[in-house]
Every structure is written in structure tokens, then in C-alpha cells.
Design a protein around this nucleic acid. Structure first.
Lengths: 235, 235
DNA sequence: TCTTCAATAATCGCATACAATACGATATTG
DNA sequence: CAATATCGTATTGTATGCGATTATTGAAGA
């Protein structure tokens, strides 16, 4: 257990715990995050919880409204578009950086990863989604560019949130074949093609999983069926 | 005066004050940042200072080592390369997004800005540098993509730091003519050309102002002249 | 029954207090 | 005299406390 009695690490532990909880939707978008109860739950004081909130707010995973505390971010569709747009730009950069520079070991690692994706494809959703996300993180790592990695991680997290809100229930997001093609292009050192593949791949993710504003997330719409079932009469 | 008695704003004020101080090099790279004295100076408690440190650390402007506090970041040359690399990717995205979508008012604003740059060109450095930086921020703003803006601002800040360390003393960084060409391409709606211009422009900034590891930042080299002047005999 | 308003409870913003750690100076020893 | 040990101080990490702000509940009035 990462008890982390070490100083400075407890703060980070809190941050990571919350981050995971949000990404895995244990904490659902829009949910209120009271400092007290969270601190109590995690065994730390409000101070550390606030510190974590600050970081998460910068990364767009929580919203921080003055005097009314923190809540899990609930990105608008517009913000979602922004995030995906930036993500495309960043990952194109990843592809270009990596083209022709993949070591044999790295290529092998990627292919192994894709094989895992293949295996998980038929199975349950969460695992498949996690693997698909990790593929992109792995690519970013391999560039050796720490900043690029950080940004890719950040947009990936936010994409998780976004898909949680607007995504189709069981879309498998990333077609494994697209990952395979990408690896091939990287291997061949064809930067332009790799970049374009990545671009289309992410574009496909958007149209496949997202941005069919599937149901207006308006309280009215959410409540309509309940109203009907009770014989009430919404306008 | 932005006294900011409002809650939550004081924290932000601290953050902004420190940020400016770092970017304008009132606080020089590597400089130690004690929580006490800074809090005292700004009239807030350590709590708020720490909060600001956290944010600045995420943005790469301060380094935060456990149990030994904060100091102004001192990016390595490698980190510098990373930052510029990502910046190129981001700003290329800006150019593509903006191509053909500039309103007349926006184009006018940009040209006005460039005129100011022209005027400041002969003058003293700091103003000229500030204007050159703001040009890129303005472009990012015009995309309407909040995340893209945030990232561009972040890399811009870090570039300031980097130039403070590795930059040539009086390089005017951005050639105004390159800005002009860029605006023209954006106006014409030629996204590809705009992206390429941006790319080359930033590439030029790097080679012009930076990354001639102008003097090895090694203690030996720094001390060599002193040794000689004292008649000492370094190997 | 639906509003309006007041009192109470919950929560936040921030400062302060205390414990733990690192830094520096003097003392001590070989 | 050099190297190390030890103590005191400075600074950080974290918890807690207090005043302020917001949410909530319940009662009175329309």
C-alpha cells in the first residue's frame, strides 16, 4: 500500500486518488466535492484536499467556484470540441516526432499493446476503453518530450470526462485496426502519413463516440420520463 | 488598485504577481522562493503563497522540491527544446484554425499590433519582446478555443524563462515581417501556408535567439576568465 | 397551497499553530 | 588542521480554528 508517510507525497496521493475517481466515474460529472468529507475519507486534512483541487482545476477535471467549493467538471459541448481539437494537434505532433524514430523495442511494445486491445475487444467496456487510452499515452511517452506527454495526458483525462457525459454507451472508441496502421506508418518513417492517420483516427473517435448531443442534458429532459410515469403533464 | 478583498481572488492575485515577476525576471531563474517572506511581502499567509506555487509548478515556472521549497524554474536545454517543439505544434494548430476565419476587425487588430511592433523595433528590448509575445497570444485568443489559449500562454511563459537563460542578449526574436506574412496567409484562407509560415517563424525564433548554447552553463566555463585574470592555470 | 423570510446548519477562505525536516554554525575528536 | 558530530535556527508540511458566505429548513403570511 502506498501509505506515503513521506512529506509532499500525501498531497500527490490525494490528487491521484481524486483524479482516478473522476476518470473512472466513481465521481460523476457535476458531483459536488466537499472538502471535509473527502479529507475524512482519505485520512487527510482539508488543506491537502484543497491543494489537489487546485491542480485538478487547472487540468479541467474539477470546477472551482468561489465560496461554493469544488465539483467534478461538467464540460460543455463547446469545451469538448476544444479539447478534441487540441488533442488532434498534439497527437499529430506525437506522430511526427515518432515517425522513423521508433526503436525495435518500442515497436514491439506497441504491437503487444495492440494485441491486448484485440483480446479485450469482445470483453467488457471499461478495460477496452482504458487500453485504448493508454495506447495514446504510450505513444506520447515514447517521444521523450515531457511537456508533450503532460499535455496528452491532460487532454486524455478530459476526454474521458467528456465521453462519460456525451459518449455513446458502448462505443469502443478506438478501432484497433487504426492503431495498427499507425504503428506501421511510424515504423516506415512516413511522418506525414502517420500524422494524417492520427488525425483521421481521432476525428473518427469523435464522430463515432461523441458529439451526437445524444440527449440534451437538461434537467427537464432528464425528468420528463419520470413526470410521465407519474401522470404529470410537462409543457 | 486590485485590492481583491473578494474571496478566491486574493489567491489569484498572488499567482499573477509571482507569474509576472518571474516572466519579467524580477525573480530570476533558479532563485529561491521562501513562503514566509513572499507572503509577508504580498500581505497574505503562506497558505495562499503555496497555492500559487502549486499552480506555477504545474505550469513549469517554479520547481517544487519536497521539504526544500520552491524556486524559480531553471529549465534545461532539453526541456527548452521540448517546450519549443510543443509550441510549434500548438501554434500551427492556431494558424490552421484561424485561416480564412479572421473577421475584418480581427485582421485590423492584428495589423495594428504589427504596426506597434514596427514602432518599438528600434527602441528598447523589453517592450519589443513583450509585443512579439502578445502577437502570438492574440492569435490564440482569436481561435476562441480556451484550452488552446491556455496552452499557448503556458508555453509562451516558459519561453520567456528559457530566453532569459539561454537567449542572446538583444535578439529581437520575432521578425515583424514574418508576422505580416502570416496575417496575409490567414486572410487569404490558405491554412497550409499559414501553418507552414508559423512553423518556420517559430523555428527561426529558436535558431535566432536560442539554442546556440551560447556559453556552456558550466561552472568551469563561467570561472575560466576569472582564473586567467588571476594568473591561475585551468587544465 | 405557494411565497417569503429568518434562523440554523453546513461549508468555504484564510490565517495560524505545531510538528517534522533540512540548513548552518559551532564544538569535538582523531 | 581536517573531518565529523551536535545543536540551534530557519523553513517546510500538515492540521486546525475562526470568521464569512452560502445552503437549508421551517414557519409565518399572502
Amino acid at each position: 500500500m502506498t501509505d506515503s508517510r513521506q512529506p509532499g507525497l500525501r498531497a500527490q496521493s490525494v490528487y491521484r486518488a481524486l483524479r482516478r475517481a473522476i476518470i473512472e466515474q466513481a465521481l460523476k460529472p457535476g458531483m459536488k466535492l466537499p472538502e471535509d468529507s473527502i479529507g475524512e475519507q482519505l485520512g487527510v486534512s482539508r488543506t491537502l484536499v484543497r491543494e489537489a483541487f487546485g491542480r485538478l482545476a487547472v487540468e479541467g477535471l474539477v470546477e472551482l467556484k468561489p465560496n461554493r467549493g469544488a465539483s467534478v467538471a461538467y464540460p460543455t459541448l463547446e469545451e469538448a470540441r476544444d479539447v478534441f481539437d487540441v488533442r488532434r494537434g498534439l497527437e499529430r505532433l506525437v506522430a511526427e516526432n515518432l515517425a522513423g524514430r521508433l526503436t525495435a523495442a518500442q515497436a514491439a511494445e506497441l504491437e503487444d499493446h495492440v494485441r491486448q486491445e484485440d483480446k479485450a475487444h469482445g470483453q467488457d467496456g471499461p478495460e477496452s476503453i482504458r487500453l485504448a487510452g493508454e495506447f495514446h499515452i504510450k505513444l506520447a511517452e515514447m517521444t521523450g518530450n515531457a511537456l508533450l506527454l503532460r499535455y496528452v495526458q491532460e487532454v486524455s483525462s478530459r476526454c474521458s470526462l467528456i465521453l462519460a457525459i456525451y459518449g455513446r454507451p458502448h462505443s469502443s472508441e478506438c478501432a484497433v485496426s487504426e492503431h495498427r496502421q499507425l504503428i506501421e506508418a511510424l515504423r516506415a518513417g512516413d511522418g506525414a502519413r502517420a500524422a494524417q492517420l492520427m488525425d483521421h483516427h481521432l476525428q473518427a473517435v469523435v464522430t463515432r463516440a461523441l458529439l451526437t448531443p445524444r440527449a440534451e442534458r437538461d434537467i427537464r429532459d432528464l425528468l420528463a420520463p419520470y413526470a410521465l410515469s407519474e401522470g404529470l403533464n410537462p409543457p
